[in-house]
């Protein structure tokens, strides 16, 4: 772990300006970052601690649920407005990590958790994400937990977080505060970049840009939603596959549907083809089956993760069954 200096700004503007310095790193809960530093996967010479910023509130702004980026995972999971407006996000958080980690980890930080790919997390391996151009031994190696969707010849690392999966399904946006003092909002799905041949660039965040809030629109399909997670053990494990499903039915016809998957893609993966199969159609077991089959459109399985194709389809089916039951 490299020595660093630490700055504790009290305004978002000061934080953003400090964070724009090369070799600077923001820290919030630190539950992932500390591991990355300790294992020499990442290093920073200036650490900008966001702890004092007033970004912890969860509130309703008309039709929009606003989740302050520094609210802890535990606070978000238990918040009544979150449970009412976007219950799948609460379920996803409670299915993530452990109570101790949820008490430390923040909503904004969780969106930026880095991949669990073992090759990325050990500097003893080559890794295009960690050292651009060094190669990806994971594609031909231990790829059981890696992505079948959105990968490239450079990288098939999964984005591991649960929380963004239902948020992507819910059309959430993130509010960003830039070093230049400007704020902008970005669709959460578009916050993440596909790896392509630059897997080290994971988001569209600009230098110094701070995530200040997550904005979730209100929709019937966000309120009637669930999160199904499949993992190797019953708690404290990343998803092998997970699905957030939200639906609005009117007289047995699918008026709106939102589906996203975790654990299978290089980013939280919106299942557009499955949604299109369902939208406007009369719901039936056969229709659910068709939608589940379309979940893996474009999937590229690897030697040890081919099971995720079946697993993802089955998880989509089960999530749809659960949310329509």
């Amino acid at each position: 772990m490299q020595e660093f200096s630490r700055l504790v700004p009290t305004t978002t503007q000061a934080a953003a300006r400090a964070g724009a310095v090369p070799q600077a790193s923001f820290i919030a809960g630190g539950t992932d970052l500390m591991q990355l530093w300790k294992n020499n996967v990442q290093a920073a010479s200036l650490v900008v601690d966001l702890d004092r910023l007033d970004l912890r509130r969860i509130s309703l702004d008309g039709p929009t649920l606003r989740i302050g980026a520094l609210a802890t995972m535990a606070e978000v999971a238990e918040h009544p407005d979150v449970k009412r407006r976007v219950p799948a996000a609460s379920e996803a958080l409670l299915a993530a990590a452990s109570p101790q980690i949820r008490n430390m980890g923040t909503a904004g930080g969780n969106l930026l958790q880095r991949t669990r790919c073992g090759y990325f997390r050990d500097p003893g391996f080559a890794c295009n994400k960690r050292e651009p151009g060094s190669g990806c031994p994971a594609i031909a190696g231990e790829n059981r937990e890696l992505a079948i969707l959105g990968g490239s010849g450079s990288c098939i690392a999964t984005q591991p977080s649960d929380f963004p999966v239902p948020l992507v399904a819910a059309d959430a946006r993130v509010e960003l505060h830039g070093a230049d003092g400007q704020t902008r909002t970005v669709e959460l799905e578009q916050l993440y970049r596909l790896p392509g041949d630059t897997p080290h660039i994971e988001t569209v965040l600009r230098p110094g840009e701070v995530i200040t809030a997550i904005l979730v629109p209100d929709a019937p399909a966000n309120r009637r939603a669930t999160y199904v997670k499949v993992r190797d053990r019953q708690s404290y494990a990343y998803a092998l596959a997970s699905v957030a499903a939200g639906i609005e039915l009117q007289g047995g016809v699918v008026r709106d549907v939102r589906l996203a998957a975790g654990g299978v893609g290089t980013r939280p993966w919106r299942l557009d083809a499955s949604e299109a199969t369902l939208r406007g159609q009369r719901l039936s077991p056969a229709l659910i089956e068709q939608a589940a089959a379309r979940a893996t459109d474009g999937a590229q399985p690897h030697a040890k993760n081919a099971f995720k194709v079946t697993l993802l389809r089955n998880t989509v089916r089960r999530a749809l069954q659960a949310v329509t039951a």
């Binding site: 073992g118 090759y119 050990d122 003893g124 391996f125 031994p137 031909a140 190696g141 231990e142 059981r144």
Partner: peptide, 10 residues
């Protein structure tokens, strides 16, 4: 899990 190419633990 052992990476076959390098013998390194993943």
């Amino acid at each position: 899990l052992v990476d076959r190419a390098t013998g390194r633990i993943v």
